[in-house]
Design a protein around this nucleic acid. Structure first.
Lengths: 318, 318
DNA sequence: CTAAGCGCCGATCATTTGCTCATGTGACGA
DNA sequence: TCGTCACATGAGCAAATGATCGGCGCTTAG
């Protein structure tokens, strides 16, 4: 007999159940189909869906020696507080496929251990993916604050609503900055900064317990340009001024010094590092090597999550 | 080219890496083989080994409605503090296959949250498997104490060294009871109880923050009998006296009252429940239904981890 | 009421995976 | 030195899996 006792309402339930049978029970899809009283194809699709919807969390419970070595080397070479290196997945796969769940589990630890802290968040595709990989958990004792505006020049909210998604996952109070990332002029920038809620958010961010940011390159595929925050001319202008990378929009040169360019004054968000807030940067990939090296050299970041490949390059001709 | 940069020392490292590529990266075994510069078969074996050695932890991140309902029902019907119900895996699979990792993740939570507590532990195949499924984590602030002796009548230590394994995983100080589970006579039992380290362990156990136990049936396949702690005659004698189940060797009847039998006095360990120590019982399977129902009715246990099937039976003709 | 659109379903088939067996290799003891 | 034993390796094959395709029913717009 099929063991399906009564109809199961939700298909997500069914997917979770199929995944449980498959992964924990080690049943074949035929057996799962029989247990649940469905066809094999349906069982297959349910398991696939469980993966797609990230109902299934996998974790490898063994530190790989080579990665540990690179963590030590990174800490030593750049004077980092902490470094985490995930195994690389090879060139055929997007770096974030591996980095995101890896970083997510580290952040989960951070959120779990902290006793009511303030986390200041950047944005970007990397952070977006990382946050997506974080499990829902109780983090209501923490507070989340944006480091940076999220409104694009066209007035739309940015694609990467990192802080909101994370706040959902943690059920934590959050303080987003619904203002432009880059304001049209210095005066407008000052105006924004004088708004009460902006001032409050900035104060909170400036006294956070940890800032969590991605990092951007300034080459042709610069996130700032691709997402429309700056024009190609502006990008070239910044590069001409020495810009090699950016943290939350603030561009810096190869020595890790923020470039002296009006663009950097027009950013409404908080520039890190600020005060004594430690900066945790998540980033990997060939394009991020140069910006990371610069930021590391300049002491702009204090903790790093990256992958093996990137770590190798950072250590290579250092 | 194969991307294997230099020989990787340990095969466990390699296994973890292969599992990472397979699960996180979604690579096929052929691709993994290529990445690591090994044959497809070797890649396959590495992934399999990673599973076998429990390097891979999977978790289903979705509460299944039906299980939640049964948890509520169990709490209501038996006045439990907490109940957790894992999805069943069907009759073809050992119940512990599903129950052990499920219970393990709950216990991990308990150990993670507690701020330096004392946990009193029973033994048995169930707890053994559960502990085996727990990840290594920092639990050095906790203390672990045995509820029960672990020496079999033939003088060998029991197969199920639950407390030692758990202490390894948590790096926690532990107080095992290296004494017989059941002593030959009342006098000897008293003698054992008077030993200083036994007294200390018993005191610790009696003031623990949580007792974690399995449950045994008294039918022909009774763990106590199968593992050689009692003879078949003794078992029958206990059954004749009404025994239907046991917690850490202490037998009780269908009402959940400890039976009045000399055997129960000869046990050197601590009988739970004791003082106000809450008792968390882990058990599932057809054979455990009757003992569980009795223990629940008699208020011997206050928290329960079981599976859907068992929950259904416990609620069925209650 | 009809018909187009959409999504779910099952069948079929190529790919991937895991098992078995035969062979190779290195360690240990006679 | 040789035998043998345990264990790792690779080849081949059967089973399991996942993708594609046509069909069916439901919804919705005309």
């Amino acid at each position: 007999m099929a063991r399906n006792g009564g109809q199961i309402a939700d298909t997500r339930d069914l997917a979770a159940r199929a995944a449980w049978l498959s992964l924990v029970g080690g049943l074949t899809q035929d057996q799962i189909a029989f247990e649940l009283g469905i066809s094999r194809q349906r069982a297959q699709r349910l398991v696939a869906r469980a993966y797609a919807e990230k109902l299934v969390r996998v974790r490898i419970d063994h530190p790989i020696a080579e990665c540990l070595e690179r963590e030590q080397a990174l800490k030593a070479e750049y004077g980092l507080e902490s470094a985490w290196v995930s195994p690389s997945l090879g060139p055929s796969v997007d770096v974030l496929t591996g980095l995101a769940p890896f970083a997510a589990s580290i952040l989960e630890q951070v959120f779990r251990n902290g006793q009511g802290q303030v986390f200041a968040l950047g944005t970007g595709r990397t952070l977006q993916q990382v946050v997506e990989s974080i499990s829902t958990m109780d983090g209501a004792r923490h507070r989340l604050v944006s480091l940076i505006g999220n409104v694009a020049p066209d007035g739309s909210a940015s694609l990467y609503e990192v802080i909101v998604r994370l706040a959902e996952k943690l059920a934590a109070p959050h303080f987003p900055l619904s203002i432009p990332l880059i304001s049209p002029s210095l005066e407008v920038s000052g105006l924004y900064r004088s708004l009460p809620h902006v001032r409050k958010a900035r104060q909170l961010a400036e006294s956070a317990d940890l800032a969590i940011v991605g990092i951007g390159q300034m080459t042709k595929d610069a996130p700032l340009f691709v997402d429309g925050f700056i024009t190609e001319e502006e990008r070239q202008d910044l590069v001409a001024a020495g810009a090699i990378g950016e943290l939350s929009g603030h561009t810096f040169n190869a020595k890790g010094e923020f470039v002296d360019h009006p663009m950097n004054q027009r950013i409404v968000g908080v520039r890190v590092p600020v005060n004594d807030v430690p900066v945790l940067c998540i980033g990997a990939g060939k394009a991020k090597v140069a910006p990371l090296r610069a930021a590391l050299s300049g002491g702009l970041i204090h903790q790093l999550i990256t992958d093996e490949d990137t770590a190798r390059r950072l250590l290579g001709s250092g």
